[in-house]
Design a binder for these strands. Sequence first.
DNA 1: CTACATGCAAATCCTTTGCATCCAC
DNA 2: GTGGATGCAAAGGATTTGCATGTAG
Lengths: 146, 146
Amino acid sequence: MEPETIVEQLQSKGHRMTVPRRWIIRVLCEADHHLTVEDVHRRLVENDIKVDEATVYRTLQWLKENEAVSQTDIGQGADVYCLIGDQPHHHLICLNCNHIVDVSDDLFAGLRETLIERYRFAPRIDHFAIFGLCEGCRSELARDED
Amino acid sequence: MEPETIVEQLQSKGHRMTVPRRWIIRVLCEADHHLTVEDVHRRLVENDIKVDEATVYRTLQWLKENEAVSQTDIGQGADVYCLIGDQPHHHLICLNCNHIVDVSDDLFAGLRETLIERYRFAPRIDHFAIFGLCEGCRSELARDED
DNA sequence: CTACATGCAAATCCTTTGCATCCAC
DNA sequence: GTGGATGCAAAGGATTTGCATGTAG
């Protein structure tokens, strides 16, 4: 997704566009994974952009409120942020080995429909973290129990 | 669910059963909602049970590892803990009014199957938090946009 | 010009940890 | 008796906030 698209969308909604905001959006666009606040901040510093970490927090919060990014607790201390874009994705996280597998969004098509129809609830399932056990750890743990 | 059942299950796995552990299990059994660490601790104090908050953290962590309770980030700062029991339940949380609706577990039957079949991943979907907009807030926000 | 965003530093809040003591088994 | 659990106090880490200053519109 292009930074300009997001910038324009936000401006058209009447939001102010500042230098830190532009840069944070750009960093998110260039990232191929989700990022923590610290990650975003580090990338800015690496590019000699002086932005306070509090500003990163505030900007990501603002982007989330404007449905441009998702915020997810993947159980690693700091929340991760990710551009929503056109193709949301989700994660399977192994409780044992912490390995993360990406899964596509169509997995949630049924759930989305049911929630809207049965509960009239419009879910923002843009970046789910599902915890559980991967195949390897499952068989390993089963073996240990003997 | 009865405290004794859980106590026995854990003992049979070779775990030590102490006074704080028994009480924390009891508090969880008597709660009809999920509780934060602080909630659990408060209820202990109210019953004149002197248990350190660090112990509550450690015990809940231990119960989670033994699949007796779920731990969920419902976006309110502190994580909430809940006995898994026989009938897991989940929550729809409105991003606008913060209202929480409980939903039953059968909503996730399809997702569980797909994850196991397609990814060989055994999800621990015992207490999901799905964020989104409830019907009321949705129409309210739609009205504001005009 | 003015409302809003930022930088800076301090505060807050949740959670974890080290270590001496205690107790379940 | 002994390994594991607890209490206590302190540390740690993520996130928020107050306020003076800067700046987009």
